[in-house]
Design a protein around this nucleic acid. Structure first.
Lengths: 346, 346
DNA sequence: CGAGGCTGGTGCAACGATGCACCGCATGCT
DNA sequence: AGCATGCGGTGCATCGTTGCACCAGCCTCG
């Protein structure tokens, strides 16, 4: 089914069909228009994307680079982003970087070579230097789950939840319940987001009149490489054991994310404590699993659907040329979801 | 960077460059070849996919249609499939059907219109009639997690784990531990796979000399619509409550999948029982979560990586025209993974 | 010595959609 | 009368790659 066949069927020239297809139909006779429309769905015509892209240089595919869709958090993003894109006739090309910087760059290169002009990048890297050359050539980049930084390209859009506030909400929730000895469990504070979450934690403590110095940050030994996802739970488990060995173990624990929190729960249980009774645990993200675990996990929800929709909208408006060329930073408001894993200290 | 520029740089015609690029270099002077190769990476040339596809009608993108990448099981598939595809220079276009048959069909249509000739379809539907028209036009289809059926297109490749064996392994594991009162928890046995799993369950019972009639299948009230993923856990939880209300509750439970199994664990705990001690539970799939839950879940592992690789290989060989045109069914061997959720009956 | 074969390439017409330049005609303006 | 303007479309070159048809030059062989 080519545009030529449609044109023949409708008794017009291919140009006219093209005009209609591309909204240049201001001065087209309604009658002509209807003839074409009838021909189109009589023949079941769909424009050939390859031809269209070859001619225009544009396309309707955006790239999504995530650490791993095996992780429910990124899976959820993929799902929502795809949903938003689909509604506008866009497609999503999925790429798993496996947290390998090189693979991340290769993917973005590949996408660019394929004519993809917009990419949602969920980078684990603090710097975006590796993709700068393409950004300079016009690649539109949306950084997800990563607040913007000094060296970032001017056109960059950053989309993230307000990590400091989220973390503070979690902490406050614990102090409101009466907890006074708190701990923050995380790997190395290597990314901006992690630092922000820690900042929220200390802010929450201060607000409750607790000296952050008396709180624990575990594990201290976390190094810069522990960016893993599944490993986050291992880390949480180990950290829990460490905390239990203290003379005065904390009664409330704020974890860097849900996976980590689940690991902490696991570790606490290993140590004979009951989460949601003897100890309280708060996570971050609100992955589906949080509501399935036993006990269900109190956590800080990221409005994924809205964030994904925003990512797409931003990208699209910039691809449609009309959008602002200037970068910006979108911070979403996190929401505390209280479930069973938190309770007043006993 | 066009092929023309490379040709000029190398002092040959575009055709010659194209010949090299497409492996038609049998009778090419090694010297010419090197000149071209040098030109290519001097200019950093990458062939334009749109142009190539327009000309040849082929492309290197395959489609993946899953119910939802939000579900870790499908996320894992996406990850592994993408990995296999990447190694051969192929891309994966991700589509979430959200278990909506119409959306599923629309996606496949869309992919076809985009020039995608190969799709891995993880359909929740027993029949594939809705995509038959495209298959007849040449779409290569690999059905994943769905054994082939009578009405399927002749060219269809089906990839699945051997569900009957898997389920039998799970059942056998319980009987070997000494359990005699078993239950099978599932929604309606609406899909072939589910029926197979139930068949494996009864086979396992018979092998242990237990009359399947004495075992329980819960919930009886499951209807055909309960195909959900998150809902699977709700279903498990409800089923557990139901089972506990029996006069002689089962001591061993085989769940249709891991999510359902986790729901069952949840329900049992609600009823005051300790999983892995008072009751044993076995799942199916071995999602990442199975090893994180408390207690860790004994389950039947599907060799996802191998299955995903096979899906890609099958698709590719058929897309490269050379492959067999005849459909086939690949059944993978499941593996029992024993963890903490199973123990001898007390 | 001329027909035929091999070698190492090249010429060219597609693939399907796009969008600018342009057309003939009618009407308005001065 | 002479020129601009609006209308409803159409003609055509073009995007980058491909692969069949073809070519000139040289070798071989009866």
């Amino acid at each position: 089914m080519t545009i030529q066949q449609v044109a023949t069927e409708a008794g017009v020239s291919p140009s006219t069909v093209s005009n209609l297809l591309n909204g240049r139909n201001h001065r087209m006779l309604p009658e002509t228009r209807q003839r074409i429309e009838r021909a189109i769905d009589k023949l079941g015509y769909r424009p050939n994307r390859a031809a269209r892209q070859l001619r225009t240089g544009r396309n309707t595919t955006i790239g999504l680079v995530v650490p791993s869709v095996g992780n429910p958090f990124w899976g959820a993003l993929a799902r929502h982003l795809e949903s938003a894109a689909l509604a506008e006739g866009y497609h999503v090309l999925l790429c798993n970087s496996e947290r390998d910087p090189r693979r991340e760059r290769d993917y973005v290169d590949e996408l660019w070579a394929d004519g993809v002009h917009g990419v949602v990048l969920c980078s684990s890297l603090p710097s975006l230097d590796h993709v700068m050359p393409l950004v300079e050539r016009g690649l539109q980049l949306v950084a997800f789950d990563r607040t913007s930084q000094a060296g970032d390209p001017a056109s960059l859009v950053s989309i993230s939840v307000d990590n400091a506030i989220g973390s503070q909400l979690a902490t406050q929730h614990l102090t409101d319940l009466g907890h006074r000895r708190l701990a923050f469990v995380s790997g190395a504070l290597a990314s901006v987001n992690r630092k922000e979450r820690y900042r929220g934690f200390t802010a929450g403590l201060e607000q409750a009149g607790i000296d952050p110095a008396t709180s624990v940050r575990a594990p201290v030994k976390g190094d810069a490489d522990d960016f893993g996802d599944v490993e986050a739970s291992e880390l949480g488990r180990a950290a829990a054991a460490e905390l239990l060995a203290l003379e005065e173990p904390p009664t409330g624990i704020v974890a860097i994310n849900d996976m980590c929190a689940l690991g902490v729960c696991r570790g606490l249980r290993d140590g004979g404590l009951e989460v949601g009774k003897d100890v309280s645990v708060v996570g971050f993200d609100d992955i589906v699993l949080a509501d399935l675990y036993a006990p269900t996990l109190t956590t800080v929800r990221q409005p994924m659907k809205e964030m994904a929709a925003a990512a797409f909208t931003q990208l699209r408006s910039r691809l449609d040329d009309s959008g602002p060329t200037q970068g910006q930073s979108l911070l979403f408001r996190p929401e505390l979801i209280v479930r069973e894993s938190t309770a007043p200290p006993t």
